[in-house]
Amino acid sequence: MAMAPDRQVFEAAAGWYVQFQAEPPTPAQQQAWQRWVDSNPAHLAAWNQMEQMQRHLGAMPRDLARRALTPGQNRRQMLKLLLIVAGTGYVGWNAQKYTTLGNVWADYSTKVGQRRKIELADGTQLHLNTQTAVDVLFDDQQRLIRLRSGEILVSTGKLGAQRPFIVETRDGRIQALGTRFSLQQFSGSTRVGVLEDRVNVQPTSASTGSRILQAGEGIDLRSDRLGAIHPYRSSQAAWINGQLIVLDTPLGEVLGELARYRSGVIHCDAGAAKLRVSGTFRLDATDAVLANLQASLPISVRYFTRYWVSVGHAG
C-alpha cells in the first residue's frame, strides 16, 4: 500500500489549490503545476485529496474563498485550514463514523460521476448519486439508513412497514411516512425534498421541534434549526436518470452541479456565472455539455489540463 503524502507535499498541493481558486492559471503556471503533479505519485495523490475535500465539503464557502485569494494573513489561514483537514482526514460530524476515510467502510458507495441503484430487503429502492456513501441498518425495531455523504433518493418498500423507516444525517433524522424523497448532505446542512406522500424532519437538537413535509415541498435541515419550506420539483431528482434539468438558472450554478460529476475544478468568471441557462444536460458527458454551452452562450471554455477547466465570458 502506498504511503500517504507527507506534510510538505500536502502544503505544496494546498498552495496550488488556493492559488488556482483565484483565477485560471497562466500557461506557465499550468505547465509548472503539470510538471509537479507528474514528477511524483505522491504529488498526484495529494492533489486528488484536495479535489476530494472540495467535493466532500460542497466547495469552499465563497466568502472564505474570496479572502483566501488575497495576499497576506487570510490566504495563509486558509492554507493552514486545508492542511489541517488534509492531514487529519476530518471533515466534520463524528470522527470515527463520518470521515472521508470512514466512507471506505460504508455499506454502499459511489465514486465521482458514478450513480447506483440498490434494492433493499424490504423492497426499498435506494438511488445513490455521485460520490455518496451510506450505511443500511435494519433490525426488529427500525429500518435505518445513515447518509455519510452525498445524495440519495429513497422509495420506501412495503415489507416490514410496521417498523419505522428513518434516514439519519449529521443534521438530524428524517422519518418516511410511506413516501419517496431525496436528501443531499452539505457541509453544514441537509437538503430534504419530498416527491410523494410525507416525511417528518427532526433536527439533531432535542430542543428544536419537528416538521412534516408534504409532496412538492423541500427544506434545509441544520442540526439546531429548520429552514423555511420551499418548493421541490420532480426535475430536481432527474439525476437518477442521468440528467440535469434547469430552467432560467445562472450558469455558475449549472457549472457547480456539473462539477460534482467530474474530477478536477471548473472555474467560472463572474461575468459568465450570471448568464441564464435552460435545458436538459447529460451528467455522464460533461465535456459534451460544456461544448454545447459554449456553442449556445457567449462564453469560452478552456482546458488547461483534464483536471482544470476555465469558463469565461466572451462578450
Rank of each mutant, 00 (worst) to 15 (best):
N40A: 05
V18M: 11
A95R: 12
Q77Y: 13
G123V: 07
G102F: 15
I240R: 06
R116S: 09
G123P: 07
R302A: 10
Y232T: 02
Q31Y: 13
V309Y: 13
A206D: 11
F304K: 02
W308L: 11
S278Y: 15
Y307L: 08
A32R: 05
M78N: 06
G113L: 05
L120N: 04
K274Q: 12
T179Y: 14
I299D: 13
Q34V: 00
L226C: 03
K97S: 15
V9Q: 04
G252Y: 14
R148W: 14
S300N: 11
Y98A: 13
V277M: 02
R55Y: 13
R163W: 13
E23S: 08
R282V: 09
Q214T: 06
F186G: 06
F304Q: 08
P71L: 09
D284C: 11
A86H: 05
T132A: 03
W47Y: 14
A45K: 02
G264I: 02
L128N: 01
D135Y: 00
L258M: 08
H127A: 10
F165M: 03
A28I: 04
L128M: 03
T100Y: 14
S234R: 01
G279Y: 15
N94F: 15
V289N: 04
T100N: 11
L69H: 13
Q54W: 14
W36F: 14
D287P: 01
A22K: 09
V112R: 03
A314S: 15
S182A: 01
T132R: 01
R67C: 08
G15A: 06
E151R: 08
T88M: 01
H313W: 13
A295G: 08
Q34M: 02
A95M: 12
G87D: 10
S310G: 03
T249G: 09
N241W: 12
V136H: 10
F181W: 15
G218Y: 15
L293Q: 10
A28R: 08
E23H: 12
E257I: 05
A176V: 12
Q8Y: 11
D224C: 05
G89V: 04
A161I: 11
V311W: 11
E11C: 02
Q214N: 05
D139Q: 04
T305F: 03
G216L: 02
G157N: 06
P27A: 04
M60R: 00
L69C: 14
V18W: 14
V134H: 09
A285C: 01
G193L: 01
D135S: 02
Q52F: 11
R55D: 10
L247C: 06
A14P: 00
H56W: 14
T26R: 00
L81G: 07
W93G: 11
T132I: 04
I229E: 15
E257N: 07
Q21R: 00
N292S: 13
E196V: 06
S263I: 05
H56S: 06
I145A: 04
I166H: 11
V18T: 07
D248W: 09
L275K: 03
D139R: 02
H127W: 15
G172E: 04
T130R: 11
L297M: 07
